[in-house]
């Protein structure tokens, strides 16, 4: 039982009701040591916490399923169909309806749409992944160097970023691609990356500037670590989260941009099967056979949705503050 002590205060006053000297009994567990370390729980870091958090979200599993499926299809389309998308065509089948073995029907050239949709994934994923990799490399380098070293270095790099930022991605890509003769997945990705790195540069510049003011950076400095070492070992790993989040979403936008260029006829050459090219082809026959537009467009939408959903999940897991309530 709690112990109530009624003593007179200096001056002969007694405490008023409810304000007597009261001391609680010791808690069940006692006071315990101030500041004890838990030795039983598994260790956790930001990444491990994020992983634990993501695993619990259905959206993560849906997005992963889509991405894994798209990547497998892009890598090994032959596992899913024996029909070649370009050589097994017969003009007699032009705009033909679905039939056994050809579930999506035929396009205007009499090629199997199912096969073309599967083979089209490769171009999209390849361009998306390559462009994103280049953008992350270039943007992070520019942003991190500008943010970390500051001063006139930052002034020059930031103005360069601003200039590139002012050029619309697709417009610039159209201009460059229209004068490019040898068009491959790599050139498309390269052109997209050349004009798409500015957002990542800005994001990484901002995070690097906030991370470099942390006391652990000052601590590393007073250990005698050089500037480059601090940037690589301490600052960049701590700036990675927002860059990864943006890169996941950017992958989706690059796939869309590639499709746009191919649709306009200046992306990948017709000899490469791509969703953008197929959508462009389907446009000509849209009145007679709207279904042939549906499959490449659906594949494109599903892929982009997968990456954008993944970006959302990753952002929520890495930055709990931005989480919707």
């Amino acid at each position: 039982m709690p112990e109530n002590r009624t003593e007179t205060l200096p001056g002969g006053r007694r405490p008023r009701p409810g304000q007597e000297h009261f001391a609680a009994e010791l808690d069940e567990g006692g006071l315990g040591a101030v500041d004890a370390v838990s030795t039983t729980d598994a260790p956790s870091s930001l990444w491990r916490d994020a992983w634990r958090d993501m695993r619990r979200r259905p959206m993560f599993w849906v997005a992963s399923a889509i991405i894994v499926l798209v990547v497998i299809v892009a890598a090994f389309p032959g596992w899913f169909t024996d029909i070649h998308p370009r050589f097994d065509c017969n003009l007699a089948d032009s705009l033909g309806a679905p039939e056994p073995g050809h579930p999506f029907g035929y396009d205007k050239q009499g090629c199997d749409i199912f096969s073309r949709t599967l083979y089209g994934a490769r171009a999209s994923v390849l361009v998306g992944v390559m462009a994103t990799a280049m953008v992350v490399l270039l943007g992070t380098t520019m942003g991190a160097v500008a943010g970390y070293f500051g001063g006139w270095f930052d002034a020059i790099l930031s103005r360069i970023t601003d200039i590139f930022f002012a050029i619309p991605l697709v417009l610039a890509a159209i201009v460059i691609m229209s004068i490019t003769t040898n068009r491959t997945s790599f050139t498309v990705a390269f052109v997209l990356a050349a004009f798409g790195w500015t957002s990542i540069a800005r994001i990484s510049r901002g995070t690097v500037m906030s991370v470099k003011n942390n006391e652990f950076v000052t601590a590393a400095k007073s250990l005698g670590m050089g500037r480059g070492g601090i940037l690589l070992k301490h600052v960049l790993p701590n700036s990675a989260a927002p860059i990864i989040v943006y890169a996941t979403v950017a992958l989706g936008t690059f796939i869309v941009a590639e499709a746009t260029l191919s649709f306009l006829g200046i992306g990948l050459p017709p000899s490469t099967v791509s969703w953008g090219g197929d959508i462009s082809q389907a446009q000509n026959a849209i009145r007679q056979a709207p279904q042939i537009l549906f499959y490449p467009a659906g594949g494109l939408a599903l892929t982009v949705l997968g990456f954008i959903m993944m970006g959302d999940v990753v952002r929520d897991a890495l930055d709990p503050k931005a989480r919707k309530r």
């Binding site: 205060l9 000297h21 009261f22 001391a23 010791l26 006071l31």
Partner: peptide
């Protein structure tokens, strides 16, 4: 004039300020 000492969500001791300071009862206080 009156103090309430809280620890882990509970009141562990309360009473007139001077008394608590001069003669704390609870181990935490």
């Amino acid at each position: 004039e009156h103090l309430v000492v809280m620890f882990k969500g509970r009141v562990v001791e309360s009473g007139p300020a001077r008394q608590i300071l001069a003669d704390p009862q609870h181990p935490y206080t």
